[in-house]
């Protein structure tokens, strides 16, 4: 196609939107609500996942050894653990470190005195351990079975209930939001298709004449595809703006109002979220417009 024809198609496409303003607005409205929800879900999920992975780092597995085990055997166990793929970090906590840590928690400010009173006689002398964190909590049960099978391991202590709960909640939230978004996407395609069908009906005479004069299929279809894409694009920009201001203000409000939250939990910075959200939303919006207009023109504009 010539460049002037592209401009012509774009002008005609924009004209279609204006002529069919009400239906165009309805289509834009659904895409806006669809992508708005998508944006909100995305913000929630990203924050939730960050929280989960923070939590995953604190969910540790401790491995204790048989009494009187040789240091070389401890090293051997350490090697075997480090070779596993699901392992993220492995820290060796010696008996003295364990005792110091316990004393700090138990006696708080008086811990030095407490430790002095036990000098030379570590009550936790058999409590040297490896503290392990995993990359993915869902691999925990399998990994524990492996640990229990290792020679020289006396005890493996975990917080398995917490881990299972987090994994389950994580997937429920993900599946539910994916489901809702898919339904909204389908509704959007349906509404765009309706809008374009109306545009085609209104311009039936013009299209008929165009075909008889010898317009190519593409030339006849192009304005409607432009219409769909523009509707999709507008529909994707608006929710991005709304989500941006909403997220910013909600985060500020929560941090201002409930200062304690910011100690427990760090919100994902808006920049990190929008680096993904902008291209994905725009792609979904434009994609919806393209799909909606292409299936509709294919159905109604056979030469």
């Amino acid at each position: 196609m010539r460049i002037s024809s592209y401009f012509y198609s774009i002008r005609q496409g924009l004209k279609n939107i204006r002529r069919n303003l009400l239906f165009s607005l309805a289509s834009i409205g659904t895409i806006v609500s669809c992508l708005f929800l998508f944006g909100v879900f995305y913000c929630v999920i990203v924050n939730f996942r960050t929280a989960v992975s923070d939590l995953e780092n604190t969910v540790t597995i401790s491995v204790f050894f048989d009494e009187g085990i040789e240091d070389s055997n401890i090293n051997l166990i350490g090697e075997q653990i480090r070779m596993r793929e699901e392992v993220k970090t492995v820290d060796y906590i010696s008996a003295d470190q364990a005792w110091e840590r316990y004393a700090k928690e138990r006696y708080e400010d008086d811990y030095e005195a407490a430790m002095a009173s036990f000098a030379g006689d570590n009550p936790l002398k058999n409590s040297a351990s490896f503290e392990i964190t995993l990359k993915d909590l869902s691999a925990q049960s399998e990994f524990i079975r492996f640990l229990k099978g290792l020679h020289g391991v006396r005890k493996v202590s975990t917080s398995e209930i917490t881990a299972d709960g987090i994994v389950a909640l994580n997937s429920v939230v993900s599946y539910a939001s994916i489901g809702i978004i898919v339904i909204l996407l389908l509704v959007s395609v349906f509404l765009i298709s309706n809008t374009i069908t109306i545009g085609i009906t209104v311009r039936k005479e013009e299209i008929g004449i165009m075909k008889l004069i010898g317009a190519t299929n593409f030339f006849v279809r192009a304005p409607f595809i432009v219409e769909g894409v523009v509707i999709g694009l507008i529909g994707s920009l608006l929710p991005l703006i709304i989500v941006y201001y909403m997220y910013d203000n909600i985060v500020k409000y929560i941090i201002g109002r409930y200062a304690v939250v910011s100690k427990l939990f760090a919100f994902v910075p808006i920049g990190d979220i929008f680096v993904v959200l902008i291209p994905v939303s725009a792609a979904i919006g434009i994609g919806l417009g393209l799909i909606g207009s292409i299936i509709t023109t294919r159905k109604h504009l056979k030469v």
């Binding site: 005479e205 013009e206 008929g208 004449i209 075909k211 008889l212 004069i213 010898g214 317009a215 190519t216 299929n217 030469v303």
Partner: peptide, 22 residues
């Protein structure tokens, strides 16, 4: 071929009873 239909139609001019103007 379907895609060549426009080529033929460009060699034809058509006038209708009810004019069919936009």
């Amino acid at each position: 071929k379907r895609r060549n239909i426009p080529k033929v139609r460009r060699k034809l001019g058509v006038v209708f009873q009810n004019f069919r103007l936009l």
